[in-house]
Design a binder for these strands. Structure first.
Length: 255
DNA sequence: ATGGCTACTCCTAGTAGA
């Protein structure tokens, strides 16, 4: 079973890239973030034509998440349970072949110390509360998406330059650790301990070609599911070429 | 590395992302 995550930075702008990628990588489930599209304008038919079921949770201009899947999503959830009705649309989950998959777009935080930064930290806590209320650590649970924080020094091209900045601040790292302490492992690190593997590169300054990246897109799993995980790969090639997203997809293969 | 880009919008300038 192949489960992938990709922050596409507008699903309409990225449609040809995503269609090409689905044909090449053939995921069973793809979690999309930053679709930036109201549900009525989501290019549902283009994905259905490729044999994918589509579940969306979008909004105008910002945020927006979706699930594409070979089997129909069961027990679909949209948003955090304590979200107000007008909340950002940042979470969508479903059950596929018995695996609970949750795709997340964690708030960016805007600026360290800002109100939006506090909202980001609180969002991590609320995600943990959702897990405590609705999942068991003994179940096969996978949470993937754009977490907007690099977990460790080896996940940043220049940790000393980045330390204390947005995406690499100790408070963000602590918020991620507290989420994971519920009972999740960073599946990429099951198979690769070295640095130099990133999922996001700034559009500016030729950052991609200069290797200035961060690993902020993660696949977290309960131990129960991690035992079935054979590989986690970052499809760096998807960051190349015409009109790329600024994020690369991450692919987890389970037996 | 950070006023080097990209995508959005009551669209040609301002906002936000990461």
């Amino acid at each position: 079973m192949r489960i992938a995550t990709w922050n596409v930075n507008s699903v309409r702008m990225r449609l040809p890239r995503v269609v090409e990628w689905l044909g090449r990588q053939q995921p069973d489930v793809l979690c999309l973030q930053e679709t930036k599209t109201v549900d009525a304008d989501f290019p549902r038919g283009e994905f259905e034509a490729l044999g994918y079921h589509v579940e969306v949770f979008g909004q105008k201009t910002y945020n927006g998440v979706a699930l594409l899947s070979r089997t129909r999503a069961l027990a679909v959830v949209r948003g955090l349970p304590d979200d107000p009705p007008d909340a950002d649309r940042r979470l969508i989950g479903g059950v596929f072949e018995g695996v609970r998959v949750i795709g997340v777009y964690v708030p960016n935080g805007t600026e360290v110390g800002s109100e939006r930064f506090a909202f980001k930290l609180a969002w991590f806590r609320r995600l943990r509360e959702m897990l405590e209320a609705s999942c068991s650590t003994g179940d096969p649970v996978l949470i993937c998406g754009d977490f907007n924080v690099a977990p460790e020094d080896r996940d940043v091209h220049d940790p000393d330059a980045w330390r204390g900045r947005l995406l690499f601040h100790p408070d963000e790292q602590e918020a991620l650790r507290h989420l994971m302490a519920w009972g999740l492992v960073d599946a990429f690190r099951l198979h690769e301990t070295r640095g130099g593997h990133y999922t996001w590169w700034d559009y500016r300054a030729g950052a991609f070609h200069r290797g200035w990246g961060l690993r902020i897109d993660l696949v977290l799993m309960t131990e129960a599911l991690a035992a079935r995980c054979r590989s986690v790969t970052i499809d760096r090639d998807a960051r190349k070429g015409e009109k790329p997203s600024d994020h690369a997809p991450v692919i987890a293969d389970l037996v």
